[in-house]
Design a protein around this nucleic acid. Structure first.
Lengths: 239, 239
DNA sequence: CGAGAAATTGAGTCTCTTCAAACCCCGTGG
DNA sequence: CCACGGGGTTTGAAGAGACTCAATTTCTCG
């Protein structure tokens, strides 16, 4: 099954006909090198981008270079359905690793949503899950300690990756997000991220290899994080 | 003009027919006392709520009582179009002051959006502006200093209030948000909020009366905050 | 094997928090 | 008319968590 469908079906039912129509509208694939922008802050794209492989992130840059990552984007995610509705995007989307993407032209979205209201609903829902994630991150940044934040972030990434089969309980999986990225996502400094991760390792909650996403004690990690996956609005139990 | 229309027209054009249909679907008004919930976290409302008067806030509560306010809601705002799309809401909506509200039944939304695609688009757009606001707050909480955060928050509240005519340049206007609320919204402690506000007053950027929203030096405040209103996606120049 | 990126470590500093108390405004009741 | 009380604001002081600076080690890859 196509990752896009895999992801959307975790949010809402889609018929075979809708699935075919949606996949038929995709253009690409395209390649984006690590470090490049998939969409530029302030631009007005004519298409939305679907992640096929790799990791990307939405981010905002402040005038003096401070960066806040707003969300990570994995295969199956539509990075900016956003630009379809708001026209001008107010944040950048960057490739954290080399990415493979597909384009979904805005015209096609209009046609699809007019013909298939259920698809429109699904896309709307998908976009609002992004909101829910942003709000949860806001709680993290505003009210949680470094330890809670990082534990929470790791829990979320794990659940989201497992939705598209890129992570599984008991199996360490590739993790491409650097500590610098984690710092910009969590609102902490790089040094503090590093030291806090050490603590999580010492507690036996996560694995020691920095390139791997390895949960050694899911319940423990959840408890530390105060993580409750319902905000991801997934249909099944992905926790 | 009805505040709801006033607000929506700042985001997108609406025809007279659509306006009439939308207003016709409203039920109420209802009154909500200060401190009560307009919508309860975890519930599945059958209607969305439109603010007619007063101030409300969306918020999340952590297990130990910490609270993060996600957004303030003013007259004209639809507090949870959200519940229409996601069914179960993942945050509470509380009345910061006594509020007057109207209900927009989900069934009516379905009917309206099917008949008037432009209205559907407007509502979708409205909901994504909420996302943009949440993301901006995330940047605040994650990467900005106390001073920048509060200045930014004040700028935003001022612009949003002026959209519906509740604030105007050069005119102090009523401000019902307490410093405790401001603390929970900014992710700072109450004490630090108070001291930082003092600083903003000493710099001559805002007025000294805590019950009033009074901007003494808009450009100065904007500069301190690094505030750029484009994320509010308003049609005109409301800055 | 060398070079650059990422991770790690240590030390000193500062912002923001917490605790605790006082103050002020304002509506209420004696 | 004034004491009373409560919510909101203000202040002070001490402490903690997180930040910055700077150097070192480890990893990755050509």
């Amino acid at each position: 099954m196509h990752v896009l469908i895999q992801k959307l079906k975790a949010l809402h039912e889609i018929s075979d006909e809708e699935e075919t129509a949606l996949l038929g509208a995709l253009e690409g694939p395209y390649e984006v090198e690590r470090g490049e922008d998939i969409a530029v802050d302030g631009s007005m794209p004519k298409h939305s981008t679907v992640m096929l492989a790799g990791v990307a992130c939405r981010y905002k840059l402040l005038a003096d270079g401070r960066r806040q990552i707003l969300a990570f984007e994995y295969p199956g995610d539509i990075t900016d359905i956003y630009s379809y509705v708001l026209k001008r995007i107010d944040h950048g989307i960057g490739a954290v690793t080399k990415c493979s993407t597909a384009h979904l032209p805005h015209k096609a979205i209009t046609a699809l949503t007019e013909k298939y209201p259920n698809l429109a609903y699904t896309l709307w829902r998908d976009s609002l899950v992004d909101t829910a994630v942003a709000q949860t991150w806001l709680v993290n940044a505003g009210r949680r300690s470094a330890m809670e934040r990082l534990a929470h972030m790791i829990c979320e990434q794990f659940v989201r990756l497992s939705v598209v089969g890129l992570a599984k309980h008991g199996e360490p999986s590739k993790f491409y997000i650097t500590q610098t990225d984690l710092a910009d996502a969590s609102g902490l400094s790089l040094v503090h991220v590093n030291k806090t991760l050490q603590l999580l390792k010492e507690k036996g909650l996560i694995g020691r290899n920095p390139n791997l996403l390895e949960i050694l004690n899911w319940e423990g990690l959840r408890a530390v994080a105060g993580f409750d996956p319902t905000y991801l609005h997934l249909k099944g139990t992905h926790a």
